[in-house]
């Protein structure tokens, strides 16, 4: 009977590990996992693991992403405000257009006559005498009624 020394026990443990490993390799001959270690039957890919050194650039990336989001948010706000202003301007222009149209229609339908130009001496002197006679009679009659 051999004496079990720590070296022997570790050698035996290694042999056992080797046997198991070879068995696993034979069972999954196409596997690319060099360690042959499975977690719940799923082979973990190498890129799943992150090194501590890769965390530093991620912070910068995160900051950049945050800044990008902030910028996008600001841009959206600006666009919204611009849209609102644009809408207001469009409404105002529409109102002006409508008012102008109504005013022109009113001018077209209303017979505007200015008394001061109609009864100015220079314009009266250009009218026929008969017309002036009628106007004079009419004005004198209206003065009598008052």
């Amino acid at each position: 009977m051999q004496k079990i020394t720590p070296l022997r026990s570790s050698l035996e443990a290694f042999k056992k590990f080797k046997t198991n490993r070879e068995n696993n390799i034979n069972a999954n001959g196409h596997s690319t996992n060099p360690f042959g270690i499975t977690f719940k039957g799923t082979v973990l890919q190498m890129d799943v693991f992150e090194s501590a050194s890769s965390k530093a650039p991620n912070v910068v990336k995160q900051k950049m992403q945050d800044a990008g989001k902030l910028l996008a948010s600001a841009w959206t706000t600006v666009i919204n405000r611009f849209s609102s202003i644009k809408q207001n301007i469009a409404d105002f222009a529409k109102n002006v257009k409508t008012s102008t149209k109504e005013f022109i229609e009113m001018l077209n339908t209303t017979n505007v006559e200015f008394d001061f130009s109609k009864y100015s001496v220079s314009s009266l002197a250009k009218r026929p005498v008969s017309e002036l006679g009628e106007m004079l009679s009419k004005e004198i009659s209206s003065l009598r009624i008052k």
Binding site: L124, R127, V129, L136, E139, L143
Partner: peptide
């Protein structure tokens, strides 16, 4: 108005 008409007749 009457004054203007009469004045216009004076220079007609």
């Amino acid at each position: 108005k009457i004054k203007n008409i009469i004045e216009a007749l004076s220079i007609h």
